[in-house]
Design a binder for these strands. Sequence first.
RNA 1: CGCGGGAUGGAGCAGUCCGGUAGCUCGCGAGGCUCAUAACCUCGAGGUCAUAGGUUCGAAUCCUAUUCCCGCAACCA
Length: 687
Amino acid sequence: MSRRILVTSALPYANGHIHLGHLVEYLQTDMWVRFQKLRGNECVYICADDTHGTAIMIRARKENCDESDVIARMRKSHLSDFNRFQIAFDEYGSTNSDENREICHDIWKFARAANLIAEKEVEQLFDPIAGTFLADRFVKGTCPFCKAEDQYGDSCEKCGKTYTPKDLVNPHSTLSGATPELRTEKHLFFQLEKLHGFLNEWTQAGTHLQPSVAEYLKNFFLNEPLRDWDISRPAPYFGFEIPDFPGHYWYVWYDAPIGYVGTTLAWCKRTRQSFESWWKNSDTEIHHFIGKDITYFHTLFWPAMLHTAQYTLPSRVHIHGFLTVDGEKMSKSRGTFVQASTYLDHLDPAYLRYYYASKLGNNTNDLDLNLDEFVAKVNSDLVGKVVNLASRTARFVQTCGLSSTYPEDGGLFAEAAKDSEQIANTMEDGDFNRAMRLVMTAADRANLYIDQQAPWTLVKDPANAKKVQDICTVGLNLFRQIVIYLAPVLPELATKVGELLGEPIHAWEQAQTPLIGTPVNTFEHLMVRVKKEQVEAMIEAGKEENVVPQTSGTSTDEAAKTTANTVSEALTAEPFVEERINIDQFGAVDLRVAEVLRVEEIPEARKLLKLTLGFGGDVQKTVFAGIKAAYTPERLTGRLVLCVVNLEPRKMKFGTSEGMVLCAGTGGSDLFVLSPDSGAKPGQRIH
RNA sequence: CGCGGGAUGGAGCAGUCCGGUAGCUCGCGAGGCUCAUAACCUCGAGGUCAUAGGUUCGAAUCCUAUUCCCGCAACCA
C-alpha cells in the first residue's frame, strides 16, 4: 500500500550561504525522501528560502539595493549548492511568494476567528537615524549587572545574565551608532496558552516527537502557562503586511513555516495536483526535518497554527543535533566553518553523503565530523569494500556478460535479499548509521566470497571460463544489491551502476531479483579515494573565505594582503573594533607599570593565578589573572607587567580582583603577558 | 538545584528500554592473497563498560549518590 508523504527541511535564511552544518539536515532529508520514493511511496520534498525579517532589510540597505535583489542572488547560490550535493527538491519556493501570502492570510482568518490574537503595547528601542526598530541583537551597551561593555541587547556574554535591551547602560544601535529611543508600539500576540490542552496532547501522545523532545517540552514549556507570542512588527519591516492591522507586518517566524504550505501550493499549481489532498487530508503524512534550535517553533506554534486553521498536522517532526568538527563547534578562525561551495571545490559530495549517513541516528545528538575518520571511512567503506567489489569482478565478464541463469552462491544473494526489510526499517526510522552498518556487513560477505572463489586463479585455465563467469555474476549481483540499498545515500553511484549493468536502479524491490544474461559495460572507476591533503586544502580555503574586511574603510586590496600572512588569523578571530573612541575615553583607562611581587597558585582554580602587584613603595594590588594554563608562578615573579588599575574591582570565587594584567593571545595556553622596556619603573603611568 | 545529551580497548561509536560469555569500524602487530583504486582475507594484542554504593544467583544494562565533558536557554542548521 503506497503512502502519501510530504517532507520538508527547515527553510534556509536568505541572508547566508549553505554550510556543512546546514547539510546535516538537507542531506538527511534528501536521503529519507529518496528512500521513500525507491520504496514506491508517493513522496514530495518541499523547501524554500526564508526571505523576510530585519536582517534582509538591513542588508539590502547596506548594499544599497532592493530586498528582492538580495533574495534573488542568495536563491541562486542556494539552488546551486543543493543541486551539486544532489539534494532533489520537488519544489523550492520562497516565503516571499503570492502563494505564501495567500496561505498566511488564510491561516490568519482562522486565528482571528478563534479569538487567539490579542493587541498589546510593547516598548521597543528605535533607531532614529536608521529609522527602524531594533531587534535585540542590533543593540549593544554595558551590561546592567556586571558592567561589561559592548554586550548584546538580550544577554551578557561575560556574566551570563539576561535582560531586555532597555536595561542596557549606554545603549547604542549597531546600525548607525545612534542612541536608541524607547518607543511604544502596538503589537499583536498569538495567545498560545488557549491551546495548551491541545499541545499537551499532541506533543505527549503518539510518535510525533522523539521521546527526549517530548520530555523537554513537558518540563520546559508545558509545565507552566504558555507565553503569548509576539507576531507583528511595526513598519518599516520586510515581510507581509497584516491585512487587518495596516502599518504592521507579520514577524518572520509567522510566515516561515507557512512557507512549507505556500510552497506546496506552488507545486500543486505547477503539477496540477490537488492542494487539499496534501494539506487537508488525514491520509497524508507530513514530516518536518529540523535542527534542535528551532524545536520551539515547530512543536508548539506550528501545530497550534495548523490545528487552528484546520490543516493536516505533522505526523512527525524529526529533530537532529548540530554539527561539530573534530569535536568542537564549527569555527571561522579554525577554518571549520566550511561553506557547501568550498567543500565542493575540493571533495566529492558522495563522501559527505555517506559519512553523514554512517553517523546519523534517530536522536538529537550532535554529529561530529572527524576529519581523519572521514578520510578513513570513505576510503575503507566506499572504495575498499563496496566499489572494490565491482572493480575486482567486472573485468572478468567484460566480454561474456552475466551468466544466463543465476548460479549457486551458497545462499548469499538470498541472505542479502532478506536484509532488505531490516535495512528499510532502520532507514524509515532515520537510523541511517545502522542501515550503513548492515550494508557494510553484506559487503564483507561478498568480498569474502570472492576471496574464497579466487576467480583470478581459475581464469588462467580457459576450461574454467564458465565457472569464472558464474563467480563474477554472483559478485556483481551482490554488489548491485548493496548499491540499491545505498541508492538513497549515493544516487550518483546507483546511476553509474545501472549503466554498468545495463539496467537502471529505480526501486528497492530490485534487490530481490538477480540480474542475469545481461552484458556488462566497460568498467571505469566508480569512485576515487579521498586524500587527506584534499581535506586539509578545504580547511585552508575555509579559513580564507571567512576573512572579510571588517571596516568599511578597508580596501579590498588591503584585505587581500592580510590573508597572505599570519596576522590575518588574529584579525579574523577578533576584527578591529569599528567604534571609535576619543582621547578622553582612552585617558579614562589608568594603565600602570607594575612589578609582580608574589604569585600564588590556587589549587581549586582551573584558570586563575593570584598575583600581588607592587607599584612602588607600599602600594600593592591583588589581581586574579586567568593565565594559569600559560604561566607558572616562577616565570612571572619579579617581572614588570602592565596593569589596568582603575577597573571596577571584581568579586571572584577566590577573592576580589583589583585590576587586570594586559595579555595578548586567544586565551587558554595561548597567552602572552606584556612587559615594558627595561628602565620603566613600577607605578609609572602609560600614555 | 534551568533543561537535555554523553562518559564502553589508541580514535569514533553500537549494545542500556526487555540484566545472562563485551561488539563494530578505523588504527596497531603477525600471516595469507596478488583480481582489485597500497584495495581483499585470516589470526592476534588492547577494555575492572567515569566513580562509589545498592538490588540480584548474575549488572555496561536496574536503583541511589558523585565527578567530568558537551549542547541548548526562545530570530545561527
